[in-house]
Design a protein around this nucleic acid. Structure first.
Lengths: 244, 244
DNA sequence: CAGTGGTCTAGACCACATC
DNA sequence: ATGTGGTCTAGACCACTGG
């Protein structure tokens, strides 16, 4: 069933991968659900099972889907899977204990995209955004002060009450409540001095060195949908990174 | 040619991968050289070409080898390959220009492993180590102050003169001069204040916030062979990380 | 041209999960 | 027992490299 070379020079399995990605993006299969079996997909796309396997292998390597022997292939989710709980959270306790922090929302406001945010999120300057400020607490102690900027168009109905009512990680919240699934992010880290405001919130003196972590997060198709800046005390915590 | 299940429950291709890793570790093929073709390896190990492909695919995913269509499969190296120039160097210029820094060695001394270093490098406390201090300069400006601790047993003959004489990255130096190839590293990042010494070297006032990046680097078989602590000014630079 | 890795297929069997 | 993904094989052909 080898398709003719055609105008596209992409290998078949990457074309299949793109088709699967489109279906995922369109919501044909939702996070946590299983996608059709390899045999069914092979019939659907008129290719061999091996080619489908190859396509799915790429999606699995990108953490878009998760394969479970004997059960099926599932759309990855931020909701379950402790394994990926720390995929987008690199702050760890210095004493080595694994702890997932509690989030406390400080405020939520609607505003217009600044030039910088508009550039990062590919919005028009002045386009409507939602800005959340929150604190991440480990064992009750404030450690991270986050400012999260979101395109309002994608997060209609996001209110303080809904955020507070949700149990789970932020990306789980975005995924289940707004259908926006984060698949990738870039971070830029600097060291800065705490100012009066952030120092007070994080319970450190002004001037204390903090990690400043700026993040752009992307959904399917490399579309940026979140801009974030976190200030983090590293008195009892550190940022963990694995270089492969 | 399916081998009997045997006492090992590992799939064949992972067993092949381990055999290849052993050969790499033993220096049968050196960095930059090509390994035998898939067909030759399949004959050598009495398995099908597909199984060898699978084994090599894992090694390629771990950046242990590099596959080049039409040419062969090569042992990855820190010496060539601009693509991997920044794999272990995450500090970038804030203005976006790609620049590889120049290294200036401050001093090199021999000493004994402290308890902390011994634990990190799996040495006996007091075992001989070599400690390098150096500055990374971008466009002539000091940006990173590194302290690098190495097990003396693996780096015999490492002298200031040899370090200064070498042209290329540090890991390229280790690889070509001492046969120690880094394949993986863990980093822990904190924000600290510059003290008088580091401030002077990095040309910032004491108290300036700096990134403190601690690294343990590993060679084949997850053996730790380098401990490093870098202090980095983030006035014109940042630490880049990609979360996948 | 020959040799390499890259893709695709078809089929067999294994390991695991579920009923 | 059935269905899933995981492994392994054998063979064909494609795309790229270099003599």
């Amino acid at each position: 069933m080898n398709s003719a070379p055609g105008p596209s020079f992409q290998p078949l399995y990457l074309q299949i991968k793109d088709l699967l990605t489109q279906s995922l993006d369109a919501g044909e299969w939702k996070p946590g659900e299983s996608i059709p079996s390899e045999i069914v997909l092979a019939a659907r796309y008129k290719v061999s099972q091996g080619t489908v396997r190859n396509a799915i292998a790429v999606l699995a390597a990108e953490n878009i889907v998760v394969r479970r022997q004997g059960k099926g292939t599932f759309v990855a989710t931020h909701t379950e899977e402790q394994s990926s709980l720390f995929r987008f959270l690199r702050i760890r306790r210095a004493d080595g204990v694994d702890e997932y922090p509690h989030s406390r929302l400080l405020d939520l406001r609607r505003g217009k995209a600044t030039a910088e945010v508009a550039r990062m999120l590919l919005l028009r300057p002045g386009e409507a955004v939602i800005v959340l400020r929150r604190v991440l607490e480990y064992s009750g102690e404030p450690v991270v002060l986050d400012e999260i900027t979101l395109p309002a168009a994608l997060f209609r109905g996001l209110t303080r009450a809904r955020y507070d009512a949700y149990r789970g990680s932020t990306y789980s919240f975005f995924e289940t409540q707004f259908g926006v699934r984060m698949v990738r992010a870039d971070e830029r880290i600097k060291a800065i001095a705490a100012d009066a405001t952030s120092g007070e919130i994080l319970d450190v003196p002004a001037g204390t060195p903090l990690l400043a972590v700026e993040r752009v997060a992307y959904t399917y198709g490399d579309r940026p949908v979140e801009w974030r800046r976190g200030l983090c005390t590293t008195r009892k915590h550190y940022y963990l990174n694995q270089l492969g």
